[in-house]
Design a binder for these strands. Structure first.
Length: 497
RNA sequence: GCUCCGGUGGUGUAGCCCGGCCAAUCAUACGGGACUCUCGAUUCCGUGACCCGGGUUCAAAUCCCGGCCGGAGCACCA
Protein backbone atom coordinates (compact mmCIF):
# COMPACT_ATOMS: atom_id res chain seq x y z
CA UNK A 1 0.00 0.00 0.00
CA UNK A 2 2.71 2.37 1.06
CA UNK A 3 4.72 1.45 -1.97
CA UNK A 4 1.80 1.90 -4.31
CA UNK A 5 1.32 5.40 -3.02
CA UNK A 6 4.99 6.10 -3.58
CA UNK A 7 5.06 5.09 -7.24
CA UNK A 8 1.81 6.85 -7.94
CA UNK A 9 3.36 10.03 -6.67
CA UNK A 10 6.43 9.60 -8.78
CA UNK A 11 4.31 9.14 -11.87
CA UNK A 12 2.45 12.28 -11.02
CA UNK A 13 5.68 14.22 -10.83
CA UNK A 14 6.87 12.70 -14.08
CA UNK A 15 3.69 13.69 -15.82
CA UNK A 16 4.11 17.29 -14.79
CA UNK A 17 7.53 17.38 -16.34
CA UNK A 18 6.18 16.43 -19.72
CA UNK A 19 5.99 19.07 -22.41
CA UNK A 20 2.96 19.65 -24.61
CA UNK A 21 3.13 17.81 -27.93
CA UNK A 22 4.79 19.55 -30.85
CA UNK A 23 2.58 20.21 -33.83
CA UNK A 24 3.46 18.23 -36.93
CA UNK A 25 6.03 16.17 -35.17
CA UNK A 26 6.79 12.64 -36.22
CA UNK A 27 8.84 10.33 -34.10
CA UNK A 28 12.30 9.98 -35.54
CA UNK A 29 11.95 12.89 -37.93
CA UNK A 30 12.23 15.86 -35.64
CA UNK A 31 15.32 18.04 -35.97
CA UNK A 32 15.76 20.90 -33.56
CA UNK A 33 18.49 23.29 -32.68
CA UNK A 34 19.85 25.31 -29.87
CA UNK A 35 21.57 28.39 -31.25
CA UNK A 36 23.45 30.55 -28.77
CA UNK A 37 25.89 33.34 -29.34
CA UNK A 38 29.01 32.30 -27.45
CA UNK A 39 29.76 35.81 -26.27
CA UNK A 40 29.82 34.42 -22.74
CA UNK A 41 29.09 31.13 -21.02
CA UNK A 42 25.65 29.58 -20.81
CA UNK A 43 23.40 31.21 -18.25
CA UNK A 44 20.20 30.06 -16.65
CA UNK A 45 18.45 31.59 -19.62
CA UNK A 46 20.46 29.47 -22.03
CA UNK A 47 19.57 26.44 -19.98
CA UNK A 48 15.96 26.91 -20.93
CA UNK A 49 16.85 26.64 -24.59
CA UNK A 50 18.99 23.58 -24.03
CA UNK A 51 16.41 21.85 -21.90
CA UNK A 52 13.28 22.55 -23.90
CA UNK A 53 14.92 21.67 -27.22
CA UNK A 54 16.86 18.78 -25.78
CA UNK A 55 13.80 17.35 -24.13
CA UNK A 56 11.66 17.53 -27.26
CA UNK A 57 14.38 15.85 -29.26
CA UNK A 58 14.45 13.10 -26.67
CA UNK A 59 10.67 12.72 -26.68
CA UNK A 60 10.50 12.48 -30.46
CA UNK A 61 13.70 10.55 -30.85
CA UNK A 62 15.06 13.26 -33.10
CA UNK A 63 18.29 15.09 -33.78
CA UNK A 64 19.72 18.08 -31.94
CA UNK A 65 21.93 20.64 -33.61
CA UNK A 66 24.05 22.98 -31.53
CA UNK A 67 24.71 26.02 -33.63
CA UNK A 68 26.87 28.96 -32.72
CA UNK A 69 25.40 32.17 -34.10
CA UNK A 70 28.69 34.00 -33.97
CA UNK A 71 28.52 36.31 -36.95
CA UNK A 72 29.19 39.59 -35.24
CA UNK A 73 32.82 39.86 -34.19
CA UNK A 74 32.29 43.26 -32.66
CA UNK A 75 29.00 44.08 -30.94
CA UNK A 76 28.44 40.56 -29.69
CA UNK A 77 32.02 39.43 -29.87
CA UNK A 78 32.32 35.69 -29.24
CA UNK A 79 34.46 34.43 -26.41
CA UNK A 80 36.80 31.68 -27.49
CA UNK A 81 36.48 29.53 -24.37
CA UNK A 82 32.70 29.77 -24.42
CA UNK A 83 32.31 27.48 -27.42
CA UNK A 84 33.54 24.46 -25.51
CA UNK A 85 31.79 25.57 -22.36
CA UNK A 86 28.49 25.39 -24.18
CA UNK A 87 29.19 21.86 -25.30
CA UNK A 88 30.14 20.90 -21.74
CA UNK A 89 27.09 22.52 -20.21
CA UNK A 90 24.81 20.88 -22.71
CA UNK A 91 26.27 17.52 -21.79
CA UNK A 92 26.02 18.27 -18.13
CA UNK A 93 22.31 18.78 -18.59
CA UNK A 94 22.17 15.38 -20.18
CA UNK A 95 21.86 16.24 -23.86
CA UNK A 96 24.23 15.56 -26.66
CA UNK A 97 24.44 17.58 -29.83
CA UNK A 98 24.23 15.32 -32.86
CA UNK A 99 25.87 18.07 -34.83
CA UNK A 100 27.77 21.22 -33.97
CA UNK A 101 27.70 24.10 -36.43
CA UNK A 102 29.88 27.17 -36.27
CA UNK A 103 28.25 29.87 -38.39
CA UNK A 104 31.47 31.84 -38.63
CA UNK A 105 33.14 28.88 -40.35
CA UNK A 106 30.44 28.64 -42.96
CA UNK A 107 30.28 32.18 -44.22
CA UNK A 108 31.12 31.24 -47.84
CA UNK A 109 27.96 29.14 -47.86
CA UNK A 110 25.91 32.18 -46.96
CA UNK A 111 27.69 34.17 -49.67
CA UNK A 112 26.56 31.67 -52.29
CA UNK A 113 22.98 31.94 -51.18
CA UNK A 114 22.86 35.67 -51.18
CA UNK A 115 24.41 35.76 -54.63
CA UNK A 116 21.60 33.58 -55.85
CA UNK A 117 19.05 35.88 -54.28
CA UNK A 118 20.63 38.90 -55.92
CA UNK A 119 20.58 37.14 -59.28
CA UNK A 120 16.92 36.38 -58.82
CA UNK A 121 16.37 40.05 -57.93
CA UNK A 122 15.22 39.24 -54.41
CA UNK A 123 18.12 41.04 -52.80
CA UNK A 124 20.11 44.14 -53.64
CA UNK A 125 23.13 46.13 -52.70
CA UNK A 126 22.14 49.28 -50.88
CA UNK A 127 24.41 52.28 -50.61
CA UNK A 128 22.15 54.34 -48.38
CA UNK A 129 23.45 55.66 -45.08
CA UNK A 130 21.76 54.11 -42.11
CA UNK A 131 19.46 57.03 -41.33
CA UNK A 132 18.76 57.73 -44.96
CA UNK A 133 17.35 54.29 -45.32
CA UNK A 134 15.44 54.60 -42.09
CA UNK A 135 13.60 57.56 -43.57
CA UNK A 136 12.61 55.64 -46.65
CA UNK A 137 11.58 52.72 -44.56
CA UNK A 138 9.48 54.71 -42.13
CA UNK A 139 7.66 56.33 -45.00
CA UNK A 140 7.17 53.10 -46.85
CA UNK A 141 9.25 54.29 -49.78
CA UNK A 142 11.71 52.38 -51.86
CA UNK A 143 15.29 53.54 -51.70
CA UNK A 144 17.10 54.49 -54.94
CA UNK A 145 19.12 51.27 -54.93
CA UNK A 146 16.22 48.92 -54.64
CA UNK A 147 15.66 48.73 -58.36
CA UNK A 148 19.26 48.43 -59.39
CA UNK A 149 19.60 45.68 -61.96
CA UNK A 150 20.94 42.47 -60.46
CA UNK A 151 24.22 42.75 -62.39
CA UNK A 152 24.87 46.12 -60.82
CA UNK A 153 24.13 44.81 -57.33
CA UNK A 154 26.35 41.83 -57.97
CA UNK A 155 29.11 44.17 -58.98
CA UNK A 156 28.80 46.18 -55.77
CA UNK A 157 28.68 42.93 -53.81
CA UNK A 158 31.93 41.87 -55.41
CA UNK A 159 33.53 45.14 -54.51
CA UNK A 160 32.27 44.85 -50.94
CA UNK A 161 34.09 41.57 -50.66
CA UNK A 162 37.20 43.13 -52.17
CA UNK A 163 37.24 45.73 -49.46
CA UNK A 164 36.45 48.68 -51.66
CA UNK A 165 33.87 50.02 -49.26
CA UNK A 166 34.24 51.12 -45.73
CA UNK A 167 31.99 50.05 -42.90
CA UNK A 168 28.50 51.44 -43.26
CA UNK A 169 28.88 52.34 -46.91
CA UNK A 170 27.21 49.30 -48.40
CA UNK A 171 24.94 46.48 -47.26
CA UNK A 172 22.92 43.77 -48.90
CA UNK A 173 19.20 43.93 -48.25
CA UNK A 174 16.53 41.33 -48.73
CA UNK A 175 13.53 42.58 -50.66
CA UNK A 176 10.38 42.24 -48.66
CA UNK A 177 7.70 44.87 -48.95
CA UNK A 178 8.34 48.54 -48.28
CA UNK A 179 4.67 48.91 -47.46
CA UNK A 180 4.63 46.07 -44.96
CA UNK A 181 2.61 47.23 -42.00
CA UNK A 182 5.40 46.36 -39.64
CA UNK A 183 8.36 48.60 -40.50
CA UNK A 184 10.68 46.10 -38.83
CA UNK A 185 10.10 43.73 -41.71
CA UNK A 186 10.81 46.14 -44.57
CA UNK A 187 13.91 45.30 -46.61
CA UNK A 188 16.12 44.06 -43.83
CA UNK A 189 19.90 43.80 -43.87
CA UNK A 190 21.45 40.46 -44.73
CA UNK A 191 25.14 41.40 -44.93
CA UNK A 192 27.23 44.25 -43.62
CA UNK A 193 30.88 45.14 -43.59
CA UNK A 194 32.81 44.71 -40.35
CA UNK A 195 36.56 45.17 -40.29
CA UNK A 196 37.27 43.18 -37.21
CA UNK A 197 39.19 40.01 -36.67
CA UNK A 198 36.96 37.13 -35.57
CA UNK A 199 38.06 35.17 -32.47
CA UNK A 200 37.44 31.90 -34.23
CA UNK A 201 38.23 32.46 -37.89
CA UNK A 202 40.50 35.48 -37.76
CA UNK A 203 40.72 37.91 -40.65
CA UNK A 204 39.13 35.69 -43.27
CA UNK A 205 36.12 37.91 -43.81
CA UNK A 206 35.14 41.52 -43.85
CA UNK A 207 31.54 40.96 -44.88
CA UNK A 208 29.42 39.19 -42.29
CA UNK A 209 25.82 37.96 -42.48
CA UNK A 210 23.30 39.14 -39.91
CA UNK A 211 21.68 36.62 -37.62
CA UNK A 212 18.48 36.64 -39.61
CA UNK A 213 20.20 35.65 -42.80
CA UNK A 214 22.63 33.14 -41.39
CA UNK A 215 19.98 31.50 -39.29
CA UNK A 216 17.48 31.32 -42.14
CA UNK A 217 19.92 29.54 -44.43
CA UNK A 218 21.35 27.30 -41.75
CA UNK A 219 17.99 26.16 -40.44
CA UNK A 220 17.12 24.98 -43.90
CA UNK A 221 20.46 23.37 -44.60
CA UNK A 222 20.36 21.48 -41.31
CA UNK A 223 16.83 20.32 -42.00
CA UNK A 224 15.44 21.89 -38.85
CA UNK A 225 11.79 20.96 -38.46
CA UNK A 226 10.91 22.82 -35.27
CA UNK A 227 12.26 25.97 -33.74
CA UNK A 228 11.60 26.90 -30.15
CA UNK A 229 13.20 30.06 -28.88
CA UNK A 230 12.56 33.25 -26.97
CA UNK A 231 9.92 35.63 -28.23
CA UNK A 232 12.51 38.31 -28.83
CA UNK A 233 13.18 36.44 -32.06
CA UNK A 234 9.57 36.41 -33.16
CA UNK A 235 10.15 38.96 -35.93
CA UNK A 236 12.92 36.81 -37.30
CA UNK A 237 10.35 34.43 -38.56
CA UNK A 238 8.45 37.10 -40.44
CA UNK A 239 11.66 38.34 -42.02
CA UNK A 240 13.10 34.96 -42.84
CA UNK A 241 9.94 33.68 -44.43
CA UNK A 242 10.65 35.89 -47.43
CA UNK A 243 13.85 33.99 -48.09
CA UNK A 244 12.05 30.71 -47.70
CA UNK A 245 9.46 31.77 -50.20
CA UNK A 246 12.08 32.92 -52.69
CA UNK A 247 13.92 29.62 -52.51
CA UNK A 248 10.75 27.57 -52.32
CA UNK A 249 11.67 26.16 -48.94
CA UNK A 250 9.38 25.23 -46.12
CA UNK A 251 9.72 27.15 -42.89
CA UNK A 252 10.03 25.10 -39.72
CA UNK A 253 7.26 25.03 -37.14
CA UNK A 254 7.99 27.68 -34.54
CA UNK A 255 7.11 28.31 -30.95
CA UNK A 256 8.26 31.10 -28.68
CA UNK A 257 8.54 31.43 -24.96
CA UNK A 258 8.30 34.63 -22.97
CA UNK A 259 10.91 36.51 -21.09
CA UNK A 260 12.17 35.06 -17.88
CA UNK A 261 13.22 37.02 -14.85
CA UNK A 262 14.66 35.44 -11.76
CA UNK A 263 13.88 37.44 -8.63
CA UNK A 264 17.27 36.88 -7.07
CA UNK A 265 19.30 37.87 -10.10
CA UNK A 266 17.19 40.59 -11.61
CA UNK A 267 18.79 42.39 -14.43
CA UNK A 268 22.05 40.54 -14.87
CA UNK A 269 22.81 40.10 -18.56
CA UNK A 270 25.81 38.42 -20.09
CA UNK A 271 27.36 41.75 -20.90
CA UNK A 272 26.73 43.25 -17.49
CA UNK A 273 28.23 40.21 -15.78
CA UNK A 274 31.24 40.58 -18.00
CA UNK A 275 31.64 44.18 -16.92
CA UNK A 276 31.42 43.25 -13.26
CA UNK A 277 34.01 40.54 -13.67
CA UNK A 278 36.37 42.99 -15.30
CA UNK A 279 35.76 45.45 -12.50
CA UNK A 280 36.50 42.72 -9.98
CA UNK A 281 33.05 42.64 -8.36
CA UNK A 282 32.79 38.99 -9.31
CA UNK A 283 35.72 36.59 -9.31
CA UNK A 284 34.83 35.05 -12.66
CA UNK A 285 32.15 33.34 -14.70
CA UNK A 286 31.77 30.70 -12.02
CA UNK A 287 31.46 33.13 -9.14
CA UNK A 288 28.70 31.72 -6.92
CA UNK A 289 26.77 34.97 -7.17
CA UNK A 290 26.41 34.79 -10.93
CA UNK A 291 23.59 32.98 -12.80
CA UNK A 292 25.72 30.91 -15.13
CA UNK A 293 25.45 27.17 -15.43
CA UNK A 294 29.10 26.89 -14.48
CA UNK A 295 28.37 28.68 -11.27
CA UNK A 296 25.37 26.52 -10.42
CA UNK A 297 27.38 23.40 -11.11
CA UNK A 298 30.11 24.69 -8.86
CA UNK A 299 27.57 25.37 -6.16
CA UNK A 300 26.51 21.76 -6.28
CA UNK A 301 23.22 21.89 -8.09
CA UNK A 302 22.10 18.72 -9.81
CA UNK A 303 21.37 19.21 -13.47
CA UNK A 304 18.18 17.24 -12.98
CA UNK A 305 16.87 19.93 -10.67
CA UNK A 306 17.53 22.62 -13.22
CA UNK A 307 15.68 20.57 -15.79
CA UNK A 308 12.64 20.08 -13.60
CA UNK A 309 12.69 23.74 -12.77
CA UNK A 310 12.53 24.82 -16.39
CA UNK A 311 10.06 22.21 -17.46
CA UNK A 312 7.77 23.44 -14.72
CA UNK A 313 7.79 26.85 -16.40
CA UNK A 314 6.38 25.37 -19.56
CA UNK A 315 6.70 27.02 -22.94
CA UNK A 316 4.08 29.74 -22.75
CA UNK A 317 4.48 33.05 -24.46
CA UNK A 318 3.81 35.15 -21.42
CA UNK A 319 6.68 36.49 -19.38
CA UNK A 320 7.59 34.82 -16.14
CA UNK A 321 9.14 36.13 -13.02
CA UNK A 322 10.19 33.28 -10.86
CA UNK A 323 12.14 32.76 -7.67
CA UNK A 324 15.22 30.63 -7.17
CA UNK A 325 13.29 29.11 -4.27
CA UNK A 326 11.60 26.88 -6.81
CA UNK A 327 14.96 25.66 -8.01
CA UNK A 328 16.11 25.16 -4.42
CA UNK A 329 13.04 23.07 -3.74
CA UNK A 330 13.76 20.84 -6.73
CA UNK A 331 17.38 20.48 -5.80
CA UNK A 332 16.62 19.78 -2.18
CA UNK A 333 14.46 16.86 -3.16
CA UNK A 334 17.48 15.35 -4.86
CA UNK A 335 20.29 16.12 -2.45
CA UNK A 336 18.62 15.87 0.90
CA UNK A 337 19.09 12.14 1.10
CA UNK A 338 22.60 12.16 -0.31
CA UNK A 339 24.15 14.94 1.71
CA UNK A 340 26.02 13.96 4.85
CA UNK A 341 25.39 16.10 7.89
CA UNK A 342 28.01 18.16 9.69
CA UNK A 343 28.25 21.05 12.08
CA UNK A 344 29.43 24.39 10.85
CA UNK A 345 29.59 27.05 13.51
CA UNK A 346 29.37 30.48 12.04
CA UNK A 347 30.96 33.33 13.98
CA UNK A 348 32.17 30.95 16.67
CA UNK A 349 32.13 31.83 20.35
CA UNK A 350 34.37 29.64 22.47
CA UNK A 351 32.77 28.67 25.74
CA UNK A 352 33.98 26.61 28.64
CA UNK A 353 31.47 24.48 30.44
CA UNK A 354 31.92 24.15 34.15
CA UNK A 355 30.76 21.36 36.34
CA UNK A 356 31.87 18.35 34.38
CA UNK A 357 34.92 16.69 32.97
CA UNK A 358 33.71 14.77 29.91
CA UNK A 359 35.57 11.81 28.54
CA UNK A 360 35.38 9.81 25.36
CA UNK A 361 33.47 10.76 22.26
CA UNK A 362 30.04 11.72 21.03
CA UNK A 363 28.45 9.82 18.16
CA UNK A 364 26.26 11.73 15.78
CA UNK A 365 24.16 10.62 12.83
CA UNK A 366 25.89 11.11 9.49
CA UNK A 367 23.17 10.58 6.92
CA UNK A 368 19.40 10.53 7.30
CA UNK A 369 18.93 7.66 4.84
CA UNK A 370 22.13 5.65 4.70
CA UNK A 371 22.76 6.07 8.40
CA UNK A 372 26.32 5.98 9.64
CA UNK A 373 27.92 8.01 12.36
CA UNK A 374 30.42 10.73 12.80
CA UNK A 375 32.45 11.28 15.90
CA UNK A 376 33.28 14.36 17.91
CA UNK A 377 35.32 14.56 21.06
CA UNK A 378 33.37 15.08 24.24
CA UNK A 379 34.93 18.27 25.47
CA UNK A 380 34.19 21.05 27.90
CA UNK A 381 35.58 23.62 25.52
CA UNK A 382 33.25 24.06 22.59
CA UNK A 383 32.36 26.58 19.96
CA UNK A 384 28.81 27.72 19.52
CA UNK A 385 27.52 30.17 17.02
CA UNK A 386 27.32 33.79 18.00
CA UNK A 387 23.95 33.89 16.22
CA UNK A 388 22.59 31.36 18.72
CA UNK A 389 24.40 32.74 21.72
CA UNK A 390 22.91 36.15 21.20
CA UNK A 391 19.39 34.80 21.57
CA UNK A 392 19.83 33.09 24.92
CA UNK A 393 19.00 34.57 28.25
CA UNK A 394 20.56 33.87 31.57
CA UNK A 395 19.09 30.88 33.32
CA UNK A 396 18.04 29.21 30.09
CA UNK A 397 18.74 25.55 29.41
CA UNK A 398 20.43 24.88 26.10
CA UNK A 399 20.96 21.53 24.44
CA UNK A 400 24.12 20.81 22.51
CA UNK A 401 22.64 18.52 19.92
CA UNK A 402 23.35 14.86 20.65
CA UNK A 403 25.66 15.77 23.49
CA UNK A 404 24.47 17.38 26.68
CA UNK A 405 22.58 20.25 28.30
CA UNK A 406 23.96 23.50 29.57
CA UNK A 407 22.68 26.30 31.65
CA UNK A 408 23.68 29.83 30.87
CA UNK A 409 24.69 31.49 34.12
CA UNK A 410 26.31 34.72 33.06
CA UNK A 411 26.01 35.98 29.53
CA UNK A 412 28.58 38.73 29.99
CA UNK A 413 31.25 36.35 31.28
CA UNK A 414 30.27 33.46 29.04
CA UNK A 415 29.65 31.21 32.03
CA UNK A 416 27.95 27.94 31.21
CA UNK A 417 27.29 25.08 33.56
CA UNK A 418 26.71 21.42 32.82
CA UNK A 419 23.00 20.62 33.21
CA UNK A 420 22.59 16.94 32.48
CA UNK A 421 22.80 14.42 29.68
CA UNK A 422 19.19 13.66 29.05
CA UNK A 423 16.95 15.46 26.63
CA UNK A 424 14.14 15.88 29.10
CA UNK A 425 13.44 19.40 30.20
CA UNK A 426 14.81 20.88 27.03
CA UNK A 427 12.34 22.62 24.82
CA UNK A 428 12.51 21.01 21.44
CA UNK A 429 13.26 23.24 18.54
CA UNK A 430 14.95 26.49 19.18
CA UNK A 431 17.08 25.52 22.16
CA UNK A 432 18.82 22.63 20.47
CA UNK A 433 21.91 23.98 18.83
CA UNK A 434 24.92 22.71 16.96
CA UNK A 435 28.37 22.94 18.46
CA UNK A 436 31.97 21.94 17.94
CA UNK A 437 34.64 20.72 20.38
CA UNK A 438 37.78 22.81 20.16
CA UNK A 439 39.78 19.66 19.40
CA UNK A 440 37.81 18.76 16.25
CA UNK A 441 37.34 22.20 14.81
CA UNK A 442 38.99 23.72 11.78
CA UNK A 443 38.56 26.95 9.93
CA UNK A 444 35.96 27.18 7.23
CA UNK A 445 34.80 29.81 4.84
CA UNK A 446 31.53 29.56 2.93
CA UNK A 447 31.31 31.59 -0.26
CA UNK A 448 27.90 33.07 -0.87
CA UNK A 449 26.14 36.33 -1.56
CA UNK A 450 27.94 37.45 1.56
CA UNK A 451 30.73 35.16 2.72
CA UNK A 452 30.33 33.29 5.99
CA UNK A 453 33.25 32.25 8.13
CA UNK A 454 33.44 29.93 11.05
CA UNK A 455 34.58 26.57 12.28
CA UNK A 456 33.70 23.18 10.91
CA UNK A 457 34.27 19.55 11.78
CA UNK A 458 37.68 18.33 10.63
CA UNK A 459 36.03 15.29 9.05
CA UNK A 460 34.60 17.55 6.37
CA UNK A 461 38.00 17.34 4.67
CA UNK A 462 36.89 13.94 3.39
CA UNK A 463 33.92 15.42 1.57
CA UNK A 464 35.76 17.49 -1.00
CA UNK A 465 33.69 17.72 -4.18
CA UNK A 466 30.50 16.72 -2.41
CA UNK A 467 27.45 18.53 -1.20
CA UNK A 468 26.87 18.27 2.52
CA UNK A 469 24.40 19.81 4.85
CA UNK A 470 25.71 22.05 7.57
CA UNK A 471 22.94 21.47 10.06
CA UNK A 472 20.78 24.44 10.84
CA UNK A 473 22.72 26.44 8.27
CA UNK A 474 22.40 25.31 4.67
CA UNK A 475 23.47 22.83 2.04
CA UNK A 476 26.99 23.55 0.90
CA UNK A 477 29.43 22.14 -1.58
CA UNK A 478 32.86 21.41 -0.18
CA UNK A 479 35.24 22.77 -2.73
CA UNK A 480 38.68 22.18 -1.29
CA UNK A 481 41.04 22.15 1.62
CA UNK A 482 43.38 25.07 1.40
CA UNK A 483 46.49 25.81 3.31
CA UNK A 484 47.14 29.25 4.64
CA UNK A 485 50.44 29.40 6.49
CA UNK A 486 50.44 26.52 8.94
CA UNK A 487 46.73 26.05 9.02
CA UNK A 488 44.36 24.20 6.74
CA UNK A 489 40.95 25.53 6.13
CA UNK A 490 37.88 24.36 4.30
CA UNK A 491 36.60 26.32 1.38
CA UNK A 492 32.92 25.65 0.80
CA UNK A 493 30.26 27.17 -1.39
CA UNK A 494 26.75 27.93 -0.33
CA UNK A 495 24.34 25.81 -2.34
CA UNK A 496 21.01 26.82 -0.88
CA UNK A 497 19.07 26.64 2.38
C1' G B 1 4.15 56.33 -31.91
C1' C B 2 3.79 51.85 -35.20
C1' U B 3 3.50 46.21 -35.45
C1' C B 4 2.73 41.84 -32.95
C1' C B 5 1.79 38.91 -28.48
C1' G B 6 -0.05 37.93 -23.73
C1' G B 7 -3.20 38.60 -18.98
C1' U B 8 -5.70 31.90 -14.01
C1' G B 9 -4.02 32.26 -6.13
C1' G B 10 2.22 35.75 -3.46
C1' U B 11 5.09 33.02 -7.55
C1' G B 12 4.95 29.53 -11.61
C1' U B 13 1.61 26.17 -14.10
C1' A B 14 -2.83 22.89 -16.12
C1' G B 15 -7.49 23.87 -18.40
C1' C B 16 -8.87 27.86 -23.30
C1' C B 17 -8.25 25.47 -29.96
C1' C B 18 -13.33 21.39 -29.70
C1' G B 19 -18.27 26.19 -24.10
C1' G B 20 -21.23 22.29 -19.61
C1' C B 21 -17.82 16.85 -15.88
C1' C B 22 -13.96 23.76 -13.34
C1' A B 23 -17.78 25.89 -6.56
C1' A B 24 -10.71 25.41 -11.51
C1' U B 25 -5.10 21.18 -11.54
C1' C B 26 -0.30 20.64 -9.69
C1' A B 27 4.08 22.72 -7.68
C1' U B 28 6.21 26.39 -4.81
C1' A B 29 5.37 30.10 -1.08
C1' C B 30 2.87 31.34 3.36
C1' G B 31 0.05 30.03 8.28
C1' G B 32 -0.91 26.19 11.87
C1' G B 33 -0.44 20.92 14.00
C1' A B 34 2.36 16.11 14.23
C1' C B 35 7.09 13.79 13.90
C1' U B 36 12.46 14.15 14.00
C1' C B 37 17.99 15.68 19.39
C1' U B 38 18.78 20.51 12.32
C1' C B 39 15.86 26.55 11.03
C1' G B 40 16.62 20.19 6.49
C1' A B 41 13.38 15.96 5.43
C1' U B 42 8.67 13.61 6.29
C1' U B 43 3.37 14.20 7.36
C1' C B 44 -1.51 16.43 8.24
C1' C B 45 -4.65 20.69 7.87
C1' G B 46 -5.42 25.54 6.15
C1' U B 47 -4.97 30.38 3.17
C1' G B 48 -5.27 31.81 -1.70
C1' A B 49 -6.76 32.97 -8.62
C1' C B 50 -10.03 32.89 -13.91
C1' C B 51 -7.72 41.72 -15.40
C1' C B 52 -12.41 44.90 -16.12
C1' G B 53 -16.98 45.92 -18.82
C1' G B 54 -20.39 44.45 -22.35
C1' G B 55 -22.25 40.65 -25.84
C1' U B 56 -23.50 35.47 -27.75
C1' U B 57 -25.63 31.11 -25.18
C1' C B 58 -30.02 27.19 -21.44
C1' A B 59 -24.65 27.37 -20.01
C1' A B 60 -18.20 31.15 -20.60
C1' A B 61 -11.81 30.80 -17.48
C1' U B 62 -13.02 28.81 -22.31
C1' C B 63 -16.27 32.20 -28.09
C1' C B 64 -16.95 37.81 -29.84
C1' C B 65 -16.24 43.20 -29.04
C1' G B 66 -14.26 47.27 -26.17
C1' G B 67 -11.17 48.98 -22.29
C1' C B 68 -7.14 48.56 -18.89
C1' C B 69 -2.45 46.45 -17.71
C1' G B 70 2.09 43.89 -19.03
C1' G B 71 5.74 42.33 -22.67
C1' A B 72 8.44 41.89 -27.33
C1' G B 73 10.08 43.96 -31.95
C1' C B 74 10.68 48.55 -34.75
C1' A B 75 19.58 47.88 -35.14
C1' C B 76 24.53 47.51 -40.63
C1' C B 77 23.03 42.96 -31.98
C1' A B 78 22.04 38.16 -31.17
Amino acid sequence: MEKYKETEKKEERERIAILPPLPNAQKGKVVMRFAPNPNGPATLGSARGMIVNGEYVRIYDGRLVLRFDDTDPRTKRPMLEAYDWYIEDLEWLGYKADEVVYASKRIPVYYKHVEKLIEMDYAYACLCKKDEFKKFRDNGMECPHRNLPPEKSLDIWGRMLEGEFREGEAVIRIKTDMKHKDPAIRDWVAFRIIFESHPLVGDKHIVYPTLDFESAIEDHLCGITHIIRGKDLIDSERRQKYIYRYFGWEYPVTKHWGRIRIHEFGKLSTSSIKKEIEKGTFTGWDDPRVPTLRSLRRRGFESEAIKKFFLSLGVGENDVSVSMKNLYAENRKLIDEKANRYFFVENPVLIEISGFQPEGVVKLPLNPVKGGTRILKASNKVYISENDFRKFEEGEIIRLKDFCNLKLNDKQKLEFEFAGWEMKGVKKGKNIIHWLPIEDAMECIVLAERDHSGKVEKAVSKEVGKVVQFERFAFCKIEKVEKVGEENYIKAIFTHP
